[in-house]
């Protein structure tokens, strides 16, 4: 038996919106401590990881660890049938091949339930090296979304460079080029708008904007986003959901021709 009750459908809706354009099918691993998901996009260029801690739910019960293989588009269709403030109970009996979604309105006068067929999805779990990053940036997630969206109008890939001067995002396209520079915030008037940059070593890498745009669909989940960069290692973009968990994305860097000649 597995049972989890989300206090609000909205959270689950936002999570699905942030994943379903990147990954079609994924396994939700349900263990005593919580629900995790790890999946690569079809092209294997990026990796998405989700953690929802058991204590973040109204009710959370796992008798035996379960792996729920789910088509995220189908789940998203079901979630659209829930009002944002409905509670959502997800449960599965042992041995069942479907999972049930139960939506209840806040004043308990409306209930609806949907059953979704489970899939057997082959997925390998990547072991992520626990590496130190050369640079870490924390910024408002809306700011990150704006930069990525603005620069996407000019080109396909963005060069992110962190140096003493700050973080520079540069794009070059056929029509021209553009860049945005962020500097460490000095004032502390509005901590939610602050930009923090920690640089251990200067680092500069290019990434496909298409993927960054998909990652930024997670912006509604968290007011703040963290970016971590290391030379040659994948970029990490993390959206932390306070005490509930996080949604994080890894993206393989683009290796430009200039790097190969080294």
């Amino acid at each position: 038996m597995f049972e989890a009750r989300f206090p609000e459908a909205l959270l689950l809706k936002k999570i699905l919106e942030a994943i379903k354009d990147l990954v079609q099918d994924a396994n939700f691993e349900c263990t005593e401590s919580g629900i995790t998901l790890q999946a690569m996009d079809n092209a294997h260029v990026s990796l998405v990881t989700l953690l929802l801690r058991g204590e973040g739910f109204d009710l959370y019960r796992v008798d035996k660890p379960e792996s729920l293989g789910i088509n995220l588009n189908s789940m998203s269709k079901i979630m659209r049938c829930a009002a944002n403030n409905d509670t959502v109970t997800v449960d599965k009996l042992e041995g069942a091949d479907t999972v049930r979604f139960l939506f209840e309105s806040p004043n308990a006068d409306r209930m609806s339930e949907f059953h979704l067929k489970l899939m057997d999805i082959d997925s390998e779990t990547l072991e992520i090296p626990e590496s130190m990053y050369h640079a870490e940036i924390e910024l408002p997630s809306a700011e990150l979304r704006r930069i990525v969206s603005d620069l996407s109008t000019m080109g396909d890939s963005v060069r992110i460079s962190v140096s003493k001067e700050g973080v520079r995002f540069t794009v070059r396209g056929d029509e021209g080029s553009g860049s945005v520079i962020l500097r460490q915030s000095t004032g502390v008037d509005k901590p939610e708008e602050a930009i923090h940059i920690v640089m251990n070593e200067p680092v500069e890498q290019s990434f496909a904007l298409k993927y960054l745009n998909l990652f930024c669909k997670a912006a509604p989940l968290s007011a703040r986003a963290q970016i971590k960069l290391s030379k040659d290692a994948p970029l990490l973009v993390n959206f932390s959901m306070n005490n509930i968990g996080y949604l994080a994305y890894y993206l393989a860097p683009k290796i430009g021709d200039e790097d190969i000649e080294e």
Partner: peptide, 10 residues
Amino acid sequence: LDIRSAFARG
């Protein structure tokens, strides 16, 4: 441009 090889390179 593969996330696995990128982790390995890193």
